[in-house]
Computed example of a mutant assay.
Amino acid sequence: MVSEQFRAGSPITFLYLVKHAAEYPDFSVGDAFGLLSNIRGEQVLAGYTAPFPDDNYIAGVRKFLSCVPLLEHHQADCDANDRAWAVLEAFDRPLLTAFSDGGPVTKGGEAEFQQRVPGAESVKHTTNTGGRHFLQEDQPEQLSHSIITFMRD
């Protein structure tokens, strides 16, 4: 059920993933990558899990997702995010957005960069199709082509 909601782009599923990562005893990095990407190869997913042989190594991964500033108690993170946007809003060098049309967490996030970052104004942006959150895994050729075209232009 959760997998289907992720595929459909349901926003509540990110909160589920945050809770799952923090509390589920058998949380796996490979399982998270499987939810957020089109990666289906067990060996590839095992590669993402390999650096974390047991729960002693996974505390940072468990915490990472909860660092997204969504709730009131994240005010310090929201303030840091605002400071980062202030830097980006002054960035006038060319900036390409190459988001996915199927990212369950970041889909549509390119619009804010395109509107707020001066360097994004005159760039031909791209939306990569058929990928999810980890575009470099899901659509490596398409993403590479987008970047190479941007660099050439």
Score class of each variant (00 low, 15 high):
Val2Pro: 08
Val2Leu: 15
Val2Ala: 14
Val2Arg: 14
Ser3Met: 02
Glu4Thr: 14
Gln5Cys: 10
Arg7Ile: 09
Arg7Leu: 12
Gly9Ile: 05
Gly9Pro: 07
Thr13Asp: 02
Phe14Leu: 13
Leu15Gln: 11
Tyr16Glu: 03
Leu17Met: 14
Leu17Gln: 01
Val18Leu: 14
Lys19Val: 08
Lys19Gln: 12
His20Gly: 01
Glu23Asp: 14
Glu23Gly: 05
Glu23Pro: 04
Tyr24Val: 03
Phe27Val: 06
Phe27Cys: 00
Leu36Arg: 01
Leu36Phe: 12
Ile39His: 05
Ile39Lys: 02
Gly41Lys: 10
Glu42Thr: 13
Gln43Glu: 12
Val44His: 10
Gly47His: 03
Tyr48Ile: 03
Thr49Glu: 15
Pro53Gln: 11
Ile58Thr: 13
Gly60Lys: 07
Gly60Leu: 10
Val61Ser: 05
Arg62Phe: 09
Arg62Cys: 05
Arg62His: 10
Phe64Trp: 09
Leu65Lys: 03
Leu65Asn: 01
Cys67Gln: 15
Leu70Glu: 02
His74Trp: 11
His74Glu: 05
Ala76Asp: 11
Cys78Ile: 06
Cys78Met: 13
Cys78Pro: 00
Asp82Val: 03
Asp82Cys: 07
Arg83Thr: 09
Ala84Asn: 06
Ala84Val: 02
Ala90Ile: 06
Arg93Asp: 09
Pro94Val: 08
Leu95Val: 15
Thr97Pro: 00
Ala98Asn: 00
Phe99Ser: 03
Phe99Pro: 00
Gly102Arg: 03
Gly102Ser: 12
Gly103Val: 01
Val105Gln: 00
Val105Thr: 07
Val105Met: 04
Thr106Phe: 07
Lys107Ser: 06
Lys107Thr: 04
Gly108Cys: 05
Glu110Lys: 01
Glu110Cys: 07
Glu110Tyr: 08
Ala111Lys: 02
Ala111Glu: 04
Gln115Lys: 15
Arg116Cys: 15
Arg116Leu: 12
Val117Leu: 08
Val117Arg: 08
Val117His: 09
Gly119Lys: 13
Gly119Tyr: 15
Glu121Ile: 04
Lys124Arg: 15
His125Ser: 07
Thr126Met: 13
Thr126Glu: 14
Thr127Ser: 03
Asn128Gln: 11
Asn128Leu: 15
Arg132Thr: 02
Arg132Pro: 05
Phe134Val: 10
Leu135Trp: 00
Gln136Thr: 06
Glu137Val: 04
Gln139Val: 10
Gln139Ile: 08
Gln139Arg: 11
Pro140His: 00
Pro140Trp: 02
Leu143Asp: 09
Ile147Leu: 08
Ile147His: 02
Thr149Ser: 03
Phe150Arg: 05
Phe150Glu: 07
Arg152Tyr: 02
